[in-house]
Nucleic acid binder design. Structure first.
Length: 806
DNA sequence: AGCACGCCGACT
DNA sequence: GTCGGCGTGCTC
């Protein structure tokens, strides 16, 4: 029995970021529960919105008549008690709206679509009736861009001739399939058959078939396949009372072909290091300790097998297990291994799933039908109960941080959940983030190490090729003589090669050689990227698109030059240099279509190509035994980005990609081309010396007061008017300055590197602090005040622990 | 977000 | 004198 309900409504603004109290209609009093979705009236007019029940029967301090809940959208709560607490914590921690956090944790299908409709209440003049056509309701979204119609409708509304209403439509759809069941006996079917005419072939076929399946239930799709009868035939059979038909629920199957390798089911033999690591984790599972482990293992050291066996142990204890990977489509092989080991117990969650597939996987987890979850960032919210272990593979990956609101880091959420479930959290990486490694050294995390490769081979030797003399000698090229020779050798030996073109943060833009003009996005002030496949210039931020100019738009000269080389150009060049090589290109353009990633990798894995040339998406997780050569075409890109983590990222990337070579019993080799052969990052990658890189980088971070020595927070203010954005941020800086700890630093405000994005101007402040107990509440206050204090249209966003300062 | 109220300029 | 512009405030 609940008479009052506290509801968080789907209106993501600062002003509405708190529970509203509603009356529960008597007939819902026994059904309503915390965590259910509801439809409630909100605001003036006939507006109604979706909301979440976050509390029941708390007294309302609201002076006025409470409104009633219109309807419940769920029979059982979609947010359980753990998730409710988590969402609240998350909203506070990331300075975001509670409603946004709730939605982030749930599959998209549970976000209802709200539709505005216009209803006719009085007869209209013919010219107005034309807007409605034959209907007396109108979908407002169809006309909302046509100003003349909108203003006419508003006039009619004032005259009381039409009404605006809202419909909240739940999009959660369960997929059903039809199933048939014979309802007569074999004899009855025989009898019926004898009565049909000789030329009623379909009916006869049907009756023969039905006889054969008496006592069974068959999917209609299956029945159609066996009989070649149409669904209409079966509907007729139902009408005649020959069969009964039911709709049964079916999960959408996100996986393609069934697994091929039965051997993958068995656990592999563990070497001593692996055994030691596993034992520590197992102990922690058994003792219900939420220890954080950092498993550092060089590429090829068998981290995945440790994960799998730790998960198996949790399952044996009747618990569940969560494995997070940076992005499944980039690392399909690990997801496959988990599925091979745990088969139908596994649910996979990642961005490549359709909304329906995602919803179904979510329900399988929620209902306890899947006990193992593999997924990318948002899988950390998988509704698993009784978690025994959480594992985060490649914990240093930046994709674990979401860069729009709510700006959470999966690692932090994972820690929260591990604590909640008294389960260990296992962070794994070959190149841990400096944050995690320093915590491990300080004893906050328990460090586990796998220093050797499973195949006992040394890490592949890395040869550094100085591109400066190379270019002087042979002119501009993506390929040094050394690399070409090595590639040619692989071709002869029928071994494979992987080539990486590091393009992070840079793309091919065009520049006029006469006047220096660079084509930029009219909305965002950043240079447009050339896409040869569609013959357009595109803005990667807002999606703006325009044709490739033939002449310089500024000076009309013809000397337009293409800067930067894409994978496309490199592939062409390489094909010309090695005409017999079969080259696969892998980048955002060739993998845009669903499933292309897997397809390309499959093609390469099965030996249908000699060389895989791609962007950094090929650096991670790939495990192809026949690959013996890895080449990095341009190691420099990314080294000099104006970003304090640039070196760390480059070290990770180069180490990762190097690890792709020589994973089985063949010896591997790595060739790194660079214009900065003496750069410490490149030298230490060559030496395979993470520890030394860590020490070097830590000194730099300490000198500059960057993480992990200092925490950082970024505040971003934006407005259509640059002056307003700037003013707001200067005001905020003033306010911050008054109340912060003495060793806290405030940088800025400065215009952001991309100062204008989607027609708005951005200014940012970066705060660096070590210990500042006041800061969180101060920022929360600033965020809350921002709504009224500054000009309308001003927006403030806070990013705790930003990955980029750009 | 989106809706109404309310105060100013341009019109029948 | 009214119609309709958008700046302001509020939503249980």
């Amino acid at each position: 029995m609940a008479e009052l309900a506290q509801v968080i409504v789907d209106v993501p603004t600062l002003q509405t970021n708190r529970p509203y109290t509603y009356q529960v209609p008597p007939k819902l009093e026994h059904q309503i529960q915390v965590g259910m979705r509801v439809i409630v009236p909100f605001g003036k007019g006939k507006r109604s919105v979706q909301g979440f029940v976050v509390g029941l029967d708390q007294p309302a301090d609201f002076q006025g008549t409470l409104k009633q809940i219109t309807a419940l959208m769920d029979l059982v709560p979609v947010v359980n008690s753990e998730m409710m607490q988590l969402s609240h914590w998350l909203a506070d921690k990331t300075y975001s709206f509670w409603i946004s956090c709730l939605y982030t944790m749930l599959p998209n299908m549970l976000k209802a679509k709200s539709k505005r409709i216009v209803k006719l209440v009085q007869p209209l003049a013919p010219e107005d009736q034309a807007i409605f056509g034959q209907q007396n309701v109108l979908d407002y979204s169809l006309v909302q861009n046509q100003a003349s119609i909108v203003s006419r409708l508003l006039t009619l509304k004032r005259a009381g001739k039409v009404q605006f209403e809202y419909q909240v439509q739940d999009r959660a759809r369960v997929k059903t399939v039809a199933q048939i069941q014979p309802v007569l006996t074999v004899d009855e079917y025989k009898q019926l058959r004898s009565k049909t005419r000789a030329n009623a072939t379909a009916q006869r076929k049907m009756l023969d078939y039905l006889q054969s399946i008496v006592g069974q239930q068959v999917l209609i799709s299956q029945a159609q396949k066996t009989t070649h009868l149409s669904s209409a035939n079966f509907r007729q059979a139902e009408d005649k009372g020959w069969i009964s038909m039911q709709q049964i629920e079916q999960y959408r199957q996100p996986f393609g072909a069934e697994l091929t390798d039965p051997a993958a089911k068995d656990p592999l033999y563990l070497n001593l290091d692996q055994q030691r690591a596993l034992a520590s984790v197992k102990q922690s599972i058994d003792n219900r300790q939420s220890t954080v482990f950092l498993l550092q293992g060089v590429t090829g050291s068998g981290k995945t097998e440790v994960y799998l066996q730790a998960m198996a142990h949790a399952l044996q204890q009747g618990k569940t297990a969560l494995l997070m990977v940076p992005e499944i489509s980039l690392t399909p092989q690990i997801a496959e291994r988990v599925r091979a080991r745990f088969s139908s117990q596994v649910a996979v969650l990642h961005s490549g799933l359709s909304a329906g597939e995602r919803y179904d996987e979510w329900r399988r987890i929620e209902r306890g039908e899947a006990q193992v979850v593999v997924g990318a960032r948002s899988a950390v919210f998988a509704p698993l109960k009784n978690i025994g272990i959480i594992i985060m593979d490649e914990e240093h990956e930046t994709s674990y941080k979401q860069d729009d609101a709510p700006r959470y880091h999966s690692r932090e959420v994972a820690k929260w959940r591990a604590k909640y479930h008294h389960a260990p959290l296992l962070l794994g990486s070959a190149t841990p983030s400096l944050e995690s490694y320093s915590r491990a050294l300080a004893g906050n995390y328990q460090l586990l190490q796998l220093p050797h490769r499973v195949n006992k081979r040394p890490l592949p030797p890395i040869k550094i090729v100085d591109m400066r003399p190379e270019v002087q000698r042979r002119g501009e090229s993506n390929f040094s003589t050394a690399l070409l020779t090595a590639l040619q050798e692989r071709l002869t030996k029928h071994e494979q090669s992987i080539l990486m073109l590091n393009r992070r943060g840079f793309s091919s833009f065009i520049m006029c050689r006469d006047c220096g003009f660079v084509l930029k996005c009219p909305n965002c002030d950043i240079s447009l990227t050339m896409h040869l496949d569609t013959h357009t210039m595109r803005c990667h931020y807002c999606g703006h698109e325009e044709p490739i100019p033939q002449r310089c738009p500024q000076c009309h000269g013809r000397h337009i030059r293409y800067y930067g080389t894409g994978t496309e150009k490199a592939t062409k060049e390489l094909q010309a240099l090695l005409p017999t090589a079969r080259i696969l290109r892998m980048d955002v353009d060739t993998t845009r279509r669903k499933g292309m990633h897997e397809k390309l990798l499959q093609k390469f894995g099965s030996g249908q190509a000699d060389i895989l040339l791609g962007t950094q998406m090929i650096a991670k997780g790939l495990d192809f035994p026949n690959v013996t050569l890895v080449g990095v075409l341009n190691a420099d890109t990314g080294l000099d980005l104006p970003d304090f983590r640039a070196s760390e990222r480059s070290f990770d990337l180069l180490s990762q990609v190097s690890g792709r070579a020589g994973r089985a019993d063949k010896k591997g080799q790595v060739i790194v081309q660079t214009f900065n052969p003496d750069n410490y990052v490149i030298r230490l990658v060559q030496a395979h010396d993470y520890r030394k890189f860590f020490n070097t980088e830590m000194q730099i971070r300490q000198l500059a007061s960057y993480p992990p020595y200092y925490y950082t927070i970024r505040l971003m203010g934006s407005h259509e008017d640059e002056q307003v954005a700037a003013k707001m941020m200067y005001d905020i800086r003033q306010e911050l300055g008054k109340q912060l700890a003495s060793d806290t630093m405030i940088l800025g405000p400065t215009p952001r590197a991309i100062a204008r994005l989607k027609k708005r101007y951005y200014y940012q402040i970066v705060i660096k602090y070590r210990q500042d107990p006041q800061l969180h509440s101060l920022l929360t206050k600033i965020m809350q005040e921002a709504q009224n204090k500054y000009q309308r249209g001003a927006e403030l966003a806070i990013d705790p622990d930003p990955q980029y300062f750009l």
